[in-house]
């Protein structure tokens, strides 16, 4: 039986939280002994969700500077994939709670295919960025992305929230009305820029790609890590802590930035010489490769969920702040969905 993988979280009445993860099999092991072009062919078939991010990271890790000429198109595909993933969270998670006001799924599901068809034709690429900007304006933000990104204080945020309604705004208002804005607020350690030499050395420890730490400490990667310096998030974190509201708004800030990033067409994949780092919707995706005579000798993949859902990581730290009340499972679900594990999860109160 092929397993999608699952995260199990046990919440004790004493406030302790235990997380165990069965995230399926180690894909990297089956890449050993293959050629780099085989790897580029296999990855998108296995990882159909964020296949372009895997390809981008793999290309950088396997081909180093030779991957430069593909970096623009790889980055555009990763951005389209990220936009779809963020919008899917909103479609399937936020909307369901906000009521039946349907956010139309078809344009969201076409974003990746649309960008793929547009690659290489600058005008068509820009049109894809415009398509995304329109989806954001009409179905999510109720404003142009630039207007949303200009919000830089709580008063302006409240004004935006009170304006033209969207399912996403309804969801945020619901979170605030329930008193959940600071839900799960805890001291989180954002993953810093990683020294490439040190990172490569860390992969010699087989545990590193399952239970990663940096300088002895689990770290968080993803929208909150990347956007916490935005003025609106600075204000929200000051007012409510790095809790549920900050996490949800960080996703919106990140989404709102994507159309412009697409217009710029910059190379967003980092690494080289055996290492590739792509910024996916859920955080940094790292591939580390060594080759022997043009074939893969060692391959390691470190996905963002392993940081965020580390047994002592950001999700667990956030869950440990929850009071043991009757609606504990609901609060836990809201937080876990906001941090976004990418696999099914179950919460048990024991």
């Amino acid at each position: 039986m092929i397993a999608e993988g699952r995260i199990s979280i046990e919440m004790g009445r004493d406030g302790d939280v235990r997380l165990s993860s069965n995230r399926g099999v180690d894909v990297a092991r089956m890449l050993r002994g293959r050629s780099p072009s085989d790897v580029l062919d296999l990855l998108p078939r296995l990882f159909s969700l964020c296949g372009h991010a895997h390809v981008a990271a793999a290309r950088r890790a396997m081909f180093g500077p030779q991957a430069d000429e593909m970096c623009r198109s790889d980055s555009l595909m990763v951005l389209a994939e990220n936009a779809r993933e963020h919008l899917l969270r909103i479609l399937t998670g936020w909307r369901a709670q906000a009521g039946p006001t349907a956010l139309n799924a078809a344009p969201v599901m076409s974003l990746v295919k649309g960008m793929k068809a547009a690659l290489g034709a600058r005008k068509a690429e820009r049109e894809q960025a415009d398509t995304l900007a329109d989806i954001l304006e009409h179905d999510v933000l109720g404003a142009r992305a630039a207007q949303f990104l200009a919000l830089d204080n709580i008063k302006a945020f409240d004004g935006w929230l009170a304006g033209a309604p969207t399912p996403a705004k309804d969801h945020l208002s619901g979170v605030i009305a329930k008193g959940w804005a600071s839900l799960g607020a805890s001291q989180t350690h954002y993953l810093p820029d990683l020294s490439e030499n040190l990172l490569k050395k860390r992969f010699s420890d087989p545990e590193f790609s399952r239970y990663p730490d940096w300088q002895g400490q689990p770290h968080e990667t993803g929208p909150l890590e990347r956007q916490s310096g935005h003025p609106l998030l600075v204000a929200l974190i000051k007012a409510h802590g790095a809790g549920l509201l900050a996490r949800l708004v960080a996703r919106l800030v990140e989404l709102a930035r994507i159309p412009e990033q697409m217009q710029n067409g910059d190379c967003l994949v980092q690494g080289g010489d055996g290492l590739g780092i792509a910024k996916t919707a859920r955080g940094r995706l790292i591939h580390a490769v060594t080759q022997d005579n043009g074939m893969i000798a060692e391959y390691h993949i470190l996905a963002p969920t392993e940081w965020n859902f580390h047994p002592e990581g950001a999700a667990v730290q956030a869950l440990r702040t929850l009071p043991s009340e009757a609606d504990l499972p609901m609060r836990a679900h809201a937080l876990i969905e906001a941090i976004d594990p990418c696999v099914a999860f179950e919460v048990r109160v024991v």
Partner: peptide, 8 residues
């Protein structure tokens, strides 16, 4: 890893 699995 998050895999999407084909099904009929």
């Amino acid at each position: 890893m998050c895999l999407a699995i084909p099904a009929e």
